[in-house]
Amino acid sequence: MMEAQGTPFDQMASRHDGLLREVSAEYNVDPRLFRQLVDLENTKVHLERRRLVTRQIREIIEQHLSQREQ
């Protein structure tokens, strides 16, 4: 979520978001899925051992695919 007013720093956040959408579109990937994975990694970035993260990524992808099918 971005803050209401458009300071240069909000614009930065917006550009970041724009880039994420742009690159996702280039590879025909749902940007929400990509963002979800980035958010997951953001919560683990400080950890030296990121156990089970590959499994979590797989689950997120599988869940995304099953929701798409429904």
Binding site: S24, Y27, I57, I61, L65
Partner: peptide, 15 residues
């Protein structure tokens, strides 16, 4: 799943 993971890898590589 594999196909999506590969696509995501390409996305993140470019990103």
């Amino acid at each position: 799943t594999l196909y999506t993971a590969r696509q995501l890898y390409k996305v993140v590589d470019a990103f």
